[in-house]
Amino acid sequence: MRPVPSRPRSATARRALTAATACAALAALTACGPAAGRAESTDALLSVTDQLDAAGSAVATARLAVEARADGHLPAVTADAAISDAVETASGAVHAIGTLVVPDSATDQVRRAALDASEIAVGPVASARTWLGTSAADAAAPPDLLDALDDASTAVERAHAAVQQAASERAAR
């Protein structure tokens, strides 16, 4: 062992340090970009559209599961799991829209219309589960169930468009 001489500064290391700091700062900046705030009522409406998306997705899931089951492509137990998840999602959407606090009465009107549509969606999804429980294997899907699912899907889509329009009007103002 010998006593140490002091080591000269390394220019490479200094440059590397600067580069690393710049990278970290850039990452932090780009990450924080989308955090910009939204107006309160627009925010509420966006949350309503999210819930309507969930309701629409639940209806579509139920429809796919019913079709697959009717074609004999999906085991009954698996179809049941899929549709019961869809029931949970759809009723969760109703609950979320129903309990949402909105800032003004105009927004509340939009919310109520969306609530009606999401309530319409729950019915056919739940009856899909009932059909699954009572039907024999490979029984064709009853046309009225499929129709009800389609109607629910249309209702949700309409409400979605209405809410989106209201939101963009709000944003424009």
Partner: peptide
């Protein structure tokens, strides 16, 4: 590995026993 080793060596330059 570069640049970790040089960076650490810079932070710890003058380390002694």
């Amino acid at each position: 590995p570069w640049p970790i080793a040089p960076l650490l060596r810079r932070w710890h330059r003058g380390t002694f026993l």
